[in-house]
Design a protein around this nucleic acid. Structure first.
Lengths: 154, 154
DNA sequence: CCTTTCAGTTGCATTTTGAAACTGATTTGA
DNA sequence: TCAAATCAGTTTCAAAATGCAACTGAAAGG
């Protein structure tokens, strides 16, 4: 955590919310974890239509805070790759709980989270599986190395 | 969920964030769950210094969304009591994960969450215990009926 | 009663967001 | 090889959300 956050209280929940307590930050992390997105353009293309200036400012902030790193794209010099640090990966449990709540109270979105209920695996192990997959460049849903296939292949 | 939320995508995480994806909403729920707060004045007094117009608008929104209910205070006609519905209580797991992240990455806040690490109890059972306690008017830390005492008394 | 307390509103300045046009570097393809 | 297209990011400006302080009306307290 490079840049320090103005801490309004000594509450760990309040601290976490100063890091990710806005509409967009967790959606960017979601895009990396679930959809395997890594570039500015990929984040920009997500369904929720983040404005590009806001995206740029959030990515810069996430990097300052040490939740993501930025490195040059290996083959396309115009692009950079954004990847989660360990601190960023540690938001996976929060994402899973938010997903469970959303799926429960908005049935229209439940399909997208149905796999979660069906996983017959200890929650901690599932988080570890997602973590490892994302750390190796994969994601939950997308790409050649994804959690869904890994689960099926067991 | 009375009032419907403009849903920008079919993602359950995005839906949850449209409900609680701002700086204040989860802090209000935290105040109920952890500190046993129930009235406007109690929420207003919390460390993070929410402005009273923002608090009023958030409470109204939470009620519209069906996460809290509002009922007259039994002995003081000026006050109302705000309490969590089942949908509101279902954010407890999210709060616990946010707490764990904050405690890990901001040591200054870790003390407030130390009890969590020391609980030798299945996570699901802990959530159930907190849920029941809050539902009966108690909270994690405060009041005659609190989770901390219950844990010690085991 | 008269004062205080309380929840909530109003008015207004400041900050943040959002949309669109623009910039400069890099890639693509004729 | 070079003009057009693509990409990440910035700038500009309008609109919305936030934050602060003063205010209101109802109820409690003494």
């Amino acid at each position: 955590m490079r840049k320090t956050i103005k801490r309004r209280s000594n509450c760990p929940i309040a601290f976490s919310l100063e890091v990710v307590g806005d509409s967009w930050t967790l959606l960017i992390i979601r895009d990396i974890v679930f959809a395997g997105k890594r570039t500015f353009g990929e984040f920009l293309a997500s369904d929720e239509k983040i404005a590009r200036n806001i995206l740029a400012s959030r990515l810069a902030r996430l990097e300052e805070l040490g939740l993501i790193t930025k490195k040059p794209h290996p083959t396309d010099g115009r692009k950079d790759l954004y990847e989660l640090t360990d601190a960023g990966l540690d938001f996976i449990p929060v994402l899973l709980e938010l997903s469970a709540w959303g799926a429960k109270y908005e049935p229209e979105t439940a399909e997208a989270a149905a796999w979660l209920r069906e996983v017959r695996m200890d929650k901690d192990r599932l988080i570890q599986l997602i973590r490892d997959t994302v750390k190796n460049g994969g994601s939950v849903f997308a790409g050649p190395d994804n959690v869904m296939d890994r689960l099926k292949a067991r």
